[in-house]
Simulated scan of single mutants.
Amino acid sequence: MNFKVIIVDCSGVTSEDEFWEAYVRDVNSPHPGFGRNFDAFADSLLGGPGAPVANEVRFVGTASLEALRQGRFLALLKDLAHDAPDTRITFE
């Protein structure tokens, strides 16, 4: 089995819509119908639409996400990622 890492580049992201665009672009999931919100992200980590087909997903350039919802956006992403059963999720 090959170890696959997906890099989601968040550098320069200034809105939630831009974040979800980066996620969909970089994960390149074969599953259609990803909802581009926290519920959809949580579902994707359990294998639903938008699921990353990888052993690890690295969100890089996440300093730009600190401005979204006064830091709560990134905090919620981290909380949801913590519970991902099959994929290691990191934020750099």
Rank of each mutant, 00 (worst) to 15 (best):
A51C: 12
R58L: 01
G12E: 08
V60D: 07
A67F: 03
V53I: 07
A63G: 15
E92T: 10
F73I: 10
S44E: 01
I7Y: 01
Q70H: 14
L76M: 15
F59H: 07
F73Y: 12
I7P: 00
S15I: 09
R36E: 09
S15M: 11
A63T: 12
A84H: 06
L45C: 05
R58S: 01
S29C: 03
V27E: 09
Y23V: 05
R88M: 08
P32A: 08
L68F: 07
A63I: 06
I7K: 14
G35P: 02
P32Q: 08
S64L: 09
H82Y: 14
V5R: 11
A63H: 12
K4V: 10
G12C: 10
E16C: 01
E92Q: 06
A81G: 15
N55E: 12
C10M: 09
I7C: 04
R36D: 05
F38W: 04
G61A: 06
P85K: 09
F34P: 02
G33P: 01
E21C: 08
D79P: 00
I6N: 03
R25E: 15
T87S: 06
S64F: 06
A84M: 05
N2W: 01
H31S: 08
F3N: 09
H31G: 02
Q70M: 12
I6A: 03
A63F: 02
K4E: 12
D43C: 00
L65E: 08
K78P: 08
A75S: 15
E66N: 14
T62D: 09
V53P: 00
P30T: 02
R88S: 13
G71M: 11
G12D: 08
T14M: 14
L76Y: 09
V60I: 14
F19C: 10
G71I: 10
D9W: 04
G61P: 06
P85Y: 08
A81Q: 07
G47F: 04
G48A: 00
